[in-house]
Design a protein around this nucleic acid. Structure first.
Lengths: 252, 252
DNA sequence: AAGATACATGCAGAATCGCGCAACAACCGG
DNA sequence: CCGGTTGTTGCGCGATTCTGCATGTATCTT
């Protein structure tokens, strides 16, 4: 495993779970605790995390506060979510991924819009409960706590029984070579299963995801219909993606 | 659990509830009171809390999150929930119904209790996400928005694939003649399906439910192991239930 | 005043840390 | 192709930190 890749993994883990236990990560990745500690020391030196006895915590404590994050989606995510929500036609059905960006999409759906929302995120489901027009279908399974979605065999199986016009997926990394990536293998598999059940699949990626990569590949470029982002259309990475044939919808 | 993480937890708890009882937190987190006391001493030294006999109070008074306080269950439900939570053995699995009383049970489960919680409520699942010891399994299906749980054929089918030692069910009515009742037929069916998958089934019913009835029958008395309530044990309705052979656990 | 509860302190075992060292691979100029 | 350089990784070791228990003291309750 590449050192830089490992550091990405650590940051992703930190962002998702709010903590890192050096011992556990070392065991998970099959490397020594020393390497993990060294990485954490470096990341802390760059101000990307806070080193504590036994592991590390996020540099900004608010990052993991789910309620706070839920309350106010960052500007970028809101813009991406607005564009995504506009893709949902009245009466159609939508497969909506978990994560904060997808949550922003749920909040951006017009109240009167009648549609069917299929999701594997209890958080998304909860957010849409007082949404009068939305019919909700929840995909069950083991709950992957770090990102608050159901994952694993049962969830993938449940996904086989649904289908929809549109699928909106969040990822943690969008990179020309590495592709669309996320921080967990099970989650990547679940996202693939969701995308496979929809006619069109769009990726939600606010600008900070562009040009970054996480350990696990989600989908090849051919399998997606387009990318929704608020990154500058003239950004070099965006340019390279376009050259690869990726359709990009820019949120202004 | 990381030491620094524990301190974060204490501060968060302090901000949310406005007080910390060393004994309770130690029990919740499965650590010794000494550690809690040491943490509180350190936090107080940094001016982040005010140390008092038995626990701690916020350094700056009156900064309690009122939303959080409003979310706290009424006294009766909390007492019922505490008794119910005490029935969950470490390492066992639990089927937990939706509803506010069940939510109170989720909140009453000790943080460090390792158990498997199976639920059809996205709300319950969300509430247990930052519960380190709990393995979560969510039963999917169409979301019945009125009570924020999954219902219907798919949900009942999903329930067939799980089983547990204990099932805790909420109802809206407990009446000697009408039996255990609820307001929706699909929901009643779902509750039956859940109860059928557990060795023991207890009904959660705070005192205001006792003696009332709703349109749809959930279960006959024979199918339940007992009733958990905070109603007066000498109440006439409770007496009649006992005469019917219903075991009642009284929450004090 | 007496018992119960909470507290501070000291101690021992365990976990974690930082540092130096050696092995190893990648890289680079000749 | 080759030897030197550089950077990374894992391991060992002593130092540091954390944690739970035991003990004696302080504080609260009845």
């Amino acid at each position: 495993m590449l050192a830089a890749e490992r550091r990405e993994h650590l940051l992703a883990l930190l962002a998702r779970t709010g903590k890192i236990v050096a011992k556990d990560v070392a065991a998970d990745l099959g490397i020594s605790e020393d390497s993990v500690r060294r990485d954490l020391r470096d990341l802390a030196a760059e101000g990307l995390c806070q080193r504590v006895y036994g592991g590390a915590l996020p540099a900004s404590p608010a990052v993991v506060d789910y309620d706070a994050r839920r309350a106010v989606a960052p500007e970028g995510k809101r813009k991406v979510a607005a564009v995504a929500a506009a893709l949902v036609r009245p009466g159609s059905s939508l497969i909506l991924d978990g994560g904060t960006t997808a949550l922003a999409v749920a909040q951006a759906l017009p109240q009167e819009l009648t549609c069917t929302v299929i999701t594997h995120s209890p958080t998304i489901a909860t957010a849409l409960i007082d949404h009068p027009g939305a019919e909700l279908f929840l995909l069950g399974g083991r709950v992957f706590k770090h990102s608050a979605v159901t994952c694993g065999a049962a969830a993938v199986e449940a996904a086989q029984n649904v289908s929809a016009e549109l699928c909106l997926l969040g990822v943690t990394g969008v990179h020309p070579e590495a592709g669309l990536t996320t921080a967990d293998a099970d989650e990547a598999a679940m996202k693939r299963a969701l995308a496979a059940r929809a006619a069109d699949t769009y990726i939600l990626a606010s600008f900070e995801k562009i040009g970054t990569a996480s350990p696990y590949r989600v989908l090849p470029w051919e399998k997606i219909t387009g990318l929704i982002t608020d990154a500058d259309p003239h950004d070099t990475v965006i340019g390279r993606l376009r050259a690869l044939g990726v359709k990009t919808l820019t949120a202004e």
